[in-house]
């Protein structure tokens, strides 16, 4: 199936969960990433159970604490 991750269309296996996508994409600080699918927040305690669908658009939002 085709999913858009951070603006890039990519092919993934059917049945992929958000938790698996985080692993596949090697997301930095996976414990502290905010995820949206189709502009809706996904609660972090549902990453394991949320299955991605064909055409989904996923965004990873990262903490960025610098500024000094």
């Amino acid at each position: 199936m085709t999913i858009t991750v951070a603006g890039n269309k990519k092919e993934y296996e059917e049945g992929l969960t958000v938790a698996e996508l985080i692993k596949v994409e090697d997301v930095e600080n996976p414990l502290y990433v905010t995820v949206t699918i189709n502009d809706d927040f996904i609660k972090s305690d549902t990453f394991e159970t949320t299955v991605l669908q064909e055409g989904d658009a996923v965004e990873f939002l990262y903490f960025m604490g610098g500024g000094c």
Binding site: L31, Y32, F63, G65, G66, G67, C68
Partner: peptide, 11 residues
């Protein structure tokens, strides 16, 4: 806020 030192700062 993330736990102390869990996410790096620019320092």
């Amino acid at each position: 806020p993330p736990p102390k030192d869990a996410v790096p700062t620019c320092k």
